[in-house]
Design a protein around this nucleic acid. Structure first.
Lengths: 156, 156
DNA sequence: TTGACTTCCATAAAATCCCATGATATTCCA
DNA sequence: TGGAATATCATGGGATTTTATGGAAGTCAA
């Protein structure tokens, strides 16, 4: 499965439209509906002020994850509420753009520009400022990790 | 697995294109996508002002590392942001050239010429000047190490 | 009609394709 | 073995396509 990689900064126009980066679109396009409707699955990220997005594979992955949790457990309830409760299917228009609803824009503090960030099986939409600081921290943590068990991918 | 070896100096033309050395290309080509798209996976080298590159195996190694972490853990999100968000998948055009985006060019100080340096399972793209000084330093360190090794045997 | 939301078209910049060239390396055969 | 014929490679530049983005016209509901 081809991953979402790299990050891109795009603009929200006055009608509220943003282009989904072409690279991400081609990944999402692989599971286009029979009716030819292009869509993204989105929900507010749990521990970050960003919108989390993915295609059908992500959706089934989440299903799977929830299935594996004991039914009626608190964890399952909380997760399924958080992930599915606030989730939306956004339509990608013929020019590759989406409109991010207000609730999500507020959650992620999105105003005029947004940054799309690839995370492998999903991607996030950030306000560029918030992303910059998150990324700075993420880099540091990644370096620490590398020291701990970076050998896994450093070796050979 | 055939390793990336030796180094090559190529030019960045005014459109920003650089030829990936043919020797490296043939290694990368072994895992071409089904759709025939040739790509390189790149990210800023952590401990050096250079761009680090590899093929699909390098990418899957990272993917694997992340798969092993619990989904929806903060740890995993942070790492995948740093690793995937900070990486690039550069397309290799029909003439074997890539375009290195500005962020990377800045990180590695790339201007008109670049040096491709094989490192086994991956390779790096350096500014020729920075690479020369890095190389000189590496040599010195190697000599020192050698002296240390030597003492082991000399003493006795 | 107004306002929200589409679908459709326009455009500029950037990416990509395609072909040409000179330089090197490789092959082939008398 | 020499040396011409052939391939490969890095590089340049024009032509074409994609992409992001702007705006106009069309649709629908209140």
């Amino acid at each position: 499965m081809e991953p979402f990689v790299s990050s891109f900064q795009n603009k929200i126009d006055k009608k509220g439209r943003v282009s989904v980066p072409a690279a991400f679109r081609t990944i999402l396009d692989r599971d286009v509906q029979a009716d030819g409707v292009h869509q993204v699955f989105c929900y507010p990220a749990i521990e970050a002020p960003a919108v989390e997005c993915g295609g059908v594979p992500l959706l089934s992955k989440i299903y799977q994850l929830l299935e594996d949790l004991p039914p009626y457990s608190e964890e399952r309830d909380v997760l399924s509420t958080a992930l599915f409760g606030g989730s939306l299917q956004l339509k990608i228009d013929s020019d590759g753009r989406i409109i991010i609803p207000d609730e999500m824009r507020e959650h992620a503090n999105l105003t005029d520009y947004v940054t799309f960030v690839g995370m492998g099986d999903k991607f996030r939409i950030w306000s560029p400022e918030l992303f910059a600081s998150y990324m700075a921290e993420a880099r540091e943590k990644a370096i620490e990790h590398r020291k701990l068990f970076g050998m896994k991918y450093d070796r050979k």
